[in-house]
Nucleic acid binder design. Structure first.
Lengths: 190, 190
DNA sequence: TTTACCCTACCTATCGGAAGGCAGGTTGTC
DNA sequence: GACAACCTGCCTTCCGATAGGTAGGGTAAA
């Protein structure tokens, strides 16, 4: 359990996540990881025996981290509409990072779903479901406090965010993604 | 220019499109194609020298075919809202085909954008742009005939459709995608 | 009609390289 | 000395791609 500076295992996961968010799972190799981290390919295998095991660790970490951030949004003392804005802002932050070409980890993996084994595919599904639950909670709250119109489905919010990341990344960048979010909020407002 | 029964070249493109829509570009190999079509790997290379060349042919065909279908929707004598429903229905049709696990060709390729050379990436961008234009035309018409609320952006429609295909394919299937479409139409209605 | 030629479509065989993964040795630290 | 972290070196499999050959159809001049 060494923690000297930055855990090599953590650095591997960081690089892997970055590469998958930009290039996709099947376009990322153990060599890419070892080159980026500065160790040998076999050393990556020391930390993650198989690619599937690495993806699993990555998804579990991503789920926990993302849920923690979403939790903060949900627990804040603001209107439902403001929470929705902040929630969507989380996805915008991803696209604004680095070279402005990063998508959601699970948004990428869902495209390559058949390259995943079932345990990992289940984690992707779990990510989407817990996000649907979070969005539903926000929509319910907004309907109650009168900031959002009642009777909206959370599915379209998730679809617009995931699809928006992919399409904006290809053309238009963060500005276009912001436009999509603005339009989405407007349509869901009371 | 033989056309005996079904052109081998066409059959290769058909299989390639199906595989990419379900598994993605990087998960599809020349061997997959040759196995499915029933010829040898080298024979696939006879029709398409490189993988990039094949993707290019695929995207050009897809663009033409899709635009033809969209044109029919645009030219029909119905309200803007009905046109929007029919346009969204085109994406639903894709998901309802076969094993109900097919996404939009360009929706898959945009996730694997960095695996494409620039000429092919440009074709993906072109597909999205021409669809944005089509949606804009539908929204404008709906705003004029009073069936759709004015001032809507086409970006969110495309994002919701592309993202909806990917997420619904992972969980919920065509029913969930239909829900997304219904919600989208409702929000854009006057 | 024959002969020569070219073309398309497909084949076998093979290439160099990159992929994921494993065996086993070395180093550094508690 | 135990253990984790990392190494060299290698294996197998698969990838995209190429070389070179075969069979059959079309064409056209002698």
């Amino acid at each position: 359990m060494g923690t000297a500076k930055t855990d090599t295992r953590t650095r591997i996961l960081d690089v892997a996540q970055d590469l998958i968010q930009r290039h996709g799972l099947n376009a990322m190799s153990f060599k890419d990881l070892s080159d980026a981290v500065g160790i040998r390919k076999a050393s990556v295998h020391h930390h993650f025996a198989t690619k599937a095991e690495m993806v699993r660790a990555l998804l579990e970490r991503y789920q926990v981290e993302f849920q923690q951030i979403v939790r903060k949004v949900l627990d804040s003392k603001v209107s439902g509409k403001t929470k929705l804005k902040r929630y969507c802002g989380l996805f915008l932050q991803t696209l604004e990072e680095g070279d402005q070409d990063k998508s959601c980890l699970c948004g990428m993996l869902v495209a390559e779903l058949y390259s995943l084994d079932e345990p990992e595919a289940a984690l992707v599904r779990k990510f989407f479901r817990s996000n649907i639950d979070s969005i539903q909670a926000i929509l319910d709250e907004g309907a109650q406090d009168g900031s959002l119109s009642p009777g909206s489905s959370p599915d379209i919010v998730l679809a617009a965010l995931e699809g928006g990341l992919l399409t904006a990344r290809c053309d238009g960048g963060p500005e276009r993604f912001s436009t999509i979010i603005r339009q989405l909020i407007k349509m869901l407002s009371a």
